[in-house]
Amino acid sequence: MLVRVADVFHALDDETRRLVLDELVARDGQTLFELCSMLVTRHGLSSSRQAISQHLAVLEDAGLVVTERRGRSKFHYFDGRPLAVIAQRWPTTREETP
């Protein structure tokens, strides 16, 4: 998997996309309808399905979301590998002090 760090940072630069990722971490394998419902219920975010679909496309382009089609449904899954690539690029070299 080729990870473009700029794409990952761009994807994470939006609050709605971070909320989508939070929802997928909480329960992986959701459809667009399920994600929209959770965003409204848990976060009061009433974006259109089209807007959330566009956010999912950005996350998918960055490699943070992968999809699987089953019949007429498309399921979305979180993929943390691009974040691991970034963490490997800039590892923590000293102890964190509180």
Rank of each mutant, 00 (worst) to 15 (best):
residue 24 L to N: 00
residue 13 D to W: 15
residue 32 L to S: 02
residue 1 M to E: 10
residue 85 V to G: 00
residue 66 V to T: 10
residue 66 V to Q: 07
residue 50 Q to K: 08
residue 47 S to Q: 06
residue 85 V to K: 01
residue 28 D to V: 12
residue 60 E to D: 07
residue 29 G to R: 12
residue 3 V to I: 09
residue 29 G to V: 12
residue 23 E to Q: 00
residue 68 E to W: 14
residue 58 V to P: 09
residue 15 E to K: 15
residue 48 S to L: 07
residue 98 P to A: 05
residue 89 R to P: 08
residue 17 R to M: 13
residue 24 L to C: 00
residue 89 R to M: 08
residue 54 Q to D: 05
residue 53 S to I: 11
residue 37 S to K: 06
residue 2 L to A: 04
residue 93 T to F: 15
residue 55 H to W: 11
residue 22 D to W: 05
residue 16 T to F: 08
residue 81 R to E: 08
residue 93 T to Q: 15
residue 79 D to M: 08
residue 72 R to A: 09
residue 76 H to K: 01
residue 54 Q to Y: 12
residue 22 D to E: 03
residue 73 S to Y: 13
residue 44 G to P: 04
residue 4 R to P: 10
residue 33 F to G: 00
residue 5 V to R: 09
residue 64 L to F: 11
residue 7 D to V: 07
residue 10 H to Q: 09
residue 34 E to V: 03
residue 85 V to W: 00
residue 60 E to M: 07
residue 1 M to C: 11
residue 34 E to T: 01
residue 81 R to N: 09
residue 17 R to K: 15
residue 1 M to K: 11
residue 67 T to N: 04
residue 62 A to H: 03
residue 31 T to L: 03
residue 21 L to K: 12
residue 22 D to P: 01
residue 23 E to H: 02
residue 44 G to N: 10
residue 47 S to G: 06
residue 5 V to C: 06
residue 14 D to I: 15
residue 78 F to R: 01
residue 93 T to A: 15
residue 23 E to Y: 01
residue 46 S to W: 14
residue 50 Q to L: 10
residue 60 E to K: 06
residue 25 V to K: 00
residue 98 P to G: 04
residue 30 Q to W: 13
residue 3 V to A: 03
residue 56 L to H: 06
residue 25 V to Q: 01
residue 12 L to Y: 11
residue 82 P to D: 06
residue 62 A to K: 06
residue 26 A to Y: 08
residue 87 A to M: 08
residue 86 I to N: 13
residue 2 L to G: 04
residue 65 V to P: 01
residue 20 V to Q: 02
residue 31 T to C: 00
residue 18 R to M: 08
residue 60 E to S: 07
residue 74 K to Q: 03
residue 30 Q to P: 05
residue 39 L to N: 00
residue 55 H to N: 05
residue 69 R to D: 08
residue 53 S to Q: 04
residue 64 L to Q: 07
residue 72 R to S: 10
residue 72 R to P: 05
residue 78 F to P: 02
residue 48 S to C: 03
residue 84 A to Q: 02
residue 76 H to L: 00
residue 88 Q to Y: 15
residue 48 S to W: 11
residue 95 E to Q: 12
residue 88 Q to A: 14
residue 91 P to V: 12
